[in-house]
Nucleic acid binder design. Structure first.
Lengths: 269, 269
DNA sequence: CGGCAGCTTGATTCAGATCAACGAGAGTGG
DNA sequence: CCACTCTCGTTGATCTGAATCAAGCTGCCG
């Protein structure tokens, strides 16, 4: 881990494979929502995790090119995946919200194809990538759950590609706000239409392919139009239908494109 | 299937599950390169395919929102995945080259989250999505191969996101040319630095998030600079190092980020 | 032959970048 | 306690990469 800003480096403990830990809650809920796991499977899954740690903002959890031996579940806080160009231009690829993972791909590929860093203080749970890969091999349910979640990631990336390729700044901003609102709702971090947005305008710009200045003006404009209420740190989607219209937002892609695939059971607590 | 341009609609035959067909060659080679399959697995895989068909350019093989019951392997010709906005703006998400698939996600999700259409006449091999999903369940090797190829797709999408978000027109065009060159090489459709590019400038624009006019001018500029030689239908990467420098192109992401994951064997013919 | 799709080029416009400056708050050190 | 610095947000002025508008060209197909 490497830190960008100031802050104390919180050294992560390594795994102790012999210890079985309970499956992290948010993450468990997500997996369970996809596939019912047997008690043995849950137990096996538990062996892949290390104890949770808190890391300060601006910490790189994964660096492009590094070999991938472990990943993280983010239980609390925001992080993001990004790529850097030689001259410093940055593209944020995805925002990692509580319950999301960093480095799941480690189960499949050997080297990180992008970096990831925390944007706020984060409580993360490191997991062993080889262990997880092994588990997937032994437990088809788990493998399917991961295939599913990878597919979801793909759907989000596609949506973002459309955003950057063919939408105006105003549309992009509206779309991002709706994406975040819906994703936060799914994990119970937004109830109404307002939510905490712990992102600098610089980060927003790097996600949306816009300059800081233009992000600022676009937010202001949406503010003035009365469709959102933005203050640094907080947004509210005042006029949800208007926002959805502007962004042509269809939340289906976040709900995993229809019903879950055929399986044997429902979610477990 | 729905066609955009003129042309004769080639009705696809439906599957006859009882017939075992040989695994399509390009596709087989790709899968084999990832995982060694046993004879039984190859046999099982063969039952998922329908006979090859040729479809004219401009044919929709998949439409956003449609339920996904089958997908296609493209054995010959170019196709693309795309999304359309209400006002007609189009974003091409990916180019589908010989050996690539359309609708693999059908094994995981129920409804297409994007459309796909042929750009040239294509020889395609329809496959049954449920059948393939079933096979994956029974054959972990196959499941892993697909997980792997999904990951590859994800890596390409990420690269494109960086392209659209943070690169200039010139850089984008250079990058696309290199991506296509390398991908075509991998399937033996480009040897030196030149290759057939059966894409209209409109299609290029829709992939790169640029207008037709600007694509034209950018190609011309790269031409004049002597880094490429472009004629409608054909490109040559004259100055490969210069192109790579312009695009900050790193071919690793296409070679599947390092060595293949641990497995039991090498490729089979 | 006409019509169409794609390519090309010039002229003009505009969305968004860049440059520049300032203010507010947070942390740091004396 | 204050001065200093840093990051972030905000706003104005200016510039520019790329879009749009417009027109003519080519080759192909019916």
């Amino acid at each position: 881990m490497r830190q960008h800003g100031g802050g104390v480096g919180a050294g992560l403990r390594t795994f102790d494979g012999s210890v079985v830990r309970p499956i992290p809650t948010r993450f468990a809920r997500r997996i369970a929502a996809l596939r019912a796991l047997s008690p043995e499977e849950r137990h096996a899954l538990g062996t892949a995790f290390a104890p949770a740690t808190v890391v300060p903002p601006g910490t790189d959890l994964m660096v492009e090119g590094d070999s991938l031996t472990y990943g993280y579940i983010v239980e609390e806080g925001w992080a993001c995946g990004y790529r850097l160009l030689n001259d410093g231009r940055r593209q944020i690829l995805n925002f990692v919200l509580p319950g999301d993972c960093i480095g799941v791909s480690a189960a499949v590929i050997r080297t990180a194809d992008h970096s990831a860093c925390t944007l706020t203080p984060c409580r993360v749970i490191p997991f062993s990538a080889p262990r997880l890969a092994e588990l997937q091999r032994g437990c088809p349910q788990l493998g399917e759950a991961f295939a599913w979640s990878t597919r979801l990631e793909l759907a989000m990336l596609q949506e973002r590609l459309v955003n950057l390729g063919r939408r105006t700044a105003r549309e992009r901003v509206a779309h991002l706000i709706l994406e975040l609102l819906h994703r936060l709702r799914l994990v119970g971090l937004a109830d109404g239409t307002a939510f905490e947005l712990p992102l600098t305008q610089g980060a927003l710009g790097d996600a949306l392919g816009l300059s800081i200045v233009h992000v600022n003006r676009t937010l202001r404009r949406l503010n003035n139009e009365g469709v959102i209420r933005y203050r640094p740190g907080v947004v509210a989607a005042i006029d949800l239908p208007a926002l959805a219209r502007i962004a042509e937002f269809d939340e289906d892609y976040l709900h995993q494109a229809g019903s879950p695939p055929p399986t044997n059971g429902a979610a477990t607590g």
